[in-house]
Design a protein around this nucleic acid. Structure first.
Lengths: 360, 360
DNA sequence: CTGAAAGCGCTTACAG
DNA sequence: CTGAAAGCGCTTACAG
């Protein structure tokens, strides 16, 4: 004998609902709702009625059903968070986390819950993403995060007027985002090196093109030019595997400082620090190093850092998360047209920038 | 002219519903529901109808509303995750994250979405939690995580037969959990110290009582006894601020090794390592150190570790997250009575345990 | 000031 | 095989 099919409700006194209270207090269910929601709608009830309803609610141990409340409110009180990963979650863990913290903080402050949409876990192509991105509509609106993004599904969302905002700058017009001002921050790093006396530096970036990388390169180049650094041969690209040879060559060319960028793979950075360590170079004694972006916590088992914090700037990940939530809510409320925010990055002095060694 | 009062819905055709599909496909809304839920109910529709409905759903980008689905007394394919924090999120960030990764992985593998329920942001008391915990019902079931837990709201959930599982051992009977076997792992650490030749050690734990801490202490005490360590004066409590004086005293008493525990505040551990550093003691040369639990990544700006990984054991956070998801799904399916799992912790040899310095 | 009605978006017997 | 109806528990105009 299978248990009764419908009621998954536990045996015993079922949960009281507004209609139970209404019966007990001799009023209508709608009145109960009005009393319980307080003067949210500005409605004022007769004190006596109020009292009776409140009393009955108390007696019955009434607790509103959150699901029904949300359905009736025409919003589900849930914000989506969709992360595009180039690799599997563990690797991007550290860059993902601070954003999540910010998003969660602000969501909590705004009384919103979060639906964590797991992107196409392992699918490298966009095919799996399309379906995954679609599911995002289950929320009132959605936050997107990740260097790369499947364009088609997103465009569709946009056309349908579904509210969403990117965390990170985007090229596509008409799309809201909250990003970091990489251009200014990167330029400032170049200027800092120049101020220390460097003239010939290299910017080692990754092959991977993403708005964040584009902005950093632009900042470095403009900053270098404005600060009087040499710009010829300034930028080089790597996948992280060939840095030793480059480093040797640079030394021969009289390069005294190297700037690199942080990405979700961390390839350029780890390649560079490893090469410097293998070459036995003192930092900043023999070569100054700077990093564009926040160095993510070293993965367990990684080589210890260069004996101190890397100089560069901090990306305000957490604040970006918070700002994105606020913007998304504005969008959901229908109050805002698409908007873009660029947040300033905090310079990090660190321990890896010093004056260049005297020319030999 | 105020905008139309009701629709907070974004301009344009936002979220399509079943009725929209019905209109497009020329069938009733109920038929749409039947088609979309698949043969879940065993109902078979005419292939042609099926096709038309599916097509329209696809065209419109339909996604079921999880809240409505749930209200209509069905499952919505979403699992909740609720975290109780003793302090604000940033501090527990690192202990929280590995669990989240595991939960997310397994949820994705099982085709479930994850709702992150945001707890009462700053409320230290249980009052705010009650309402927050209640919202959890929007999911099919929920995972709870955190050292401390508001008992009343949880009991309520339990009475109502709402499926949930704790991540971490719990005392309350009838509650499912997936925890770590701290007792065995802690005993093993004591045995390891004994095997190195230590006889007089101290266990420095925090004041905060939680099942995890209780279990660790029990393991240390039992392990010490079984391995022939002195047990008199073995356990001391701290809030992390007074370790220098203790350390000096211990040295005077002939203590050669100190065990401490990892918690979400990390107070005992950071107090201890700082004290050892200030005292200029070589580790493990002059004092061996062991940690019960996984050392969370050092917060940015923290003092560098003791020159290597701390000896102790690893808490299988990620695997706990995964196992908890699996158990929760069993519960939701109604297949399991409350169940408890204790996962083994992997010993970490580390670099901070060595033989005691010869007695002077 | 309060009640009756409609509706949030979906599921599920129950009739045709 | 499909449609019409009722209902999940609540909110919100709209009438009295």
């Amino acid at each position: 004998m299978p248990p009764s099919p419908k009621p998954p409700r536990a045996a015993g006194r079922a949960k009281p609902r507004q209609s139970d209270i209404a019966r007990a207090a001799g009023v209508s269910q709608a009145t109960v709702s009005l009393v319980l929601r307080g003067a949210a709608t500005g409605v004022v009830l007769a004190p006596e009625t109020r009292r009776r309803v409140l009393r009955a609610a108390e007696d019955l141990g009434y607790v509103p059903d959150p699901v029904a409340t949300r359905l009736a409110a025409a919003r589900n009180g849930m914000l989506g968070l969709y992360t595009f990963s180039t690799t599997f979650p563990t690797d991007v863990a550290h860059s993902y986390y601070p954003v999540l913290v910010g998003v969660e903080e602000e969501a909590a402050a705004q009384g919103q819950d979060l639906i964590l949409f797991t992107g196409a876990s392992r699918a490298a192509d966009d095919s799996g993403d399309a379906a995954a991105v679609r599911r995002v509509r289950a929320a009132d609106g959605c936050l997107f995060f990740g260097r790369h993004v499947p364009e088609d599904p997103i465009r569709r969302l946009s056309e349908d007027g579904f509210p969403f905002v990117y965390i990170g700058r985007r090229e596509e017009p008409g799309i809201s985002y909250v990003g970091a001002d990489y251009v200014s921050a990167s330029a400032e790093v170049a200027a800092r090196l120049a101020a220390q006396g460097h003239r010939r530096v290299r910017y080692l970036r990754e092959n991977d093109d993403a708005p964040a990388s584009t902005d950093r390169e632009r900042g470095v180049v403009e900053g270098a030019r404005d600060a009087g650094l040499e710009t010829a041969g300034l930028v080089e690209r790597t996948d992280g595997g060939d840095v030793d040879a480059r480093l040797a060559r640079w030394r021969g060319e009289g390069v005294t400082a190297v700037i690199t960028e942080e990405t979700d793979t961390g390839a350029a950075l780890s390649g560079l620090t490893a090469a410097v360590a293998r070459a036995g170079l003192a930092c900043p004694g023999e070569v100054s190093l700077a990093l564009l972006g926040t160095a993510t916590a070293a993965p367990a088992g990684a080589a210890p850092a260069l004996g101190g914090e890397i100089s560069g700037f901090d990306v305000p990940m957490r604040e970006m998360g918070r700002a994105a939530v606020r913007l998304l809510l504005d969008l959901i409320e229908g109050e805002a047209a698409p908007r873009r925010h660029l947040l300033a990055c905090e310079p990090v002095s660190g321990a890896t920038i010093g004056p260049p060694a005297p020319a030999n």
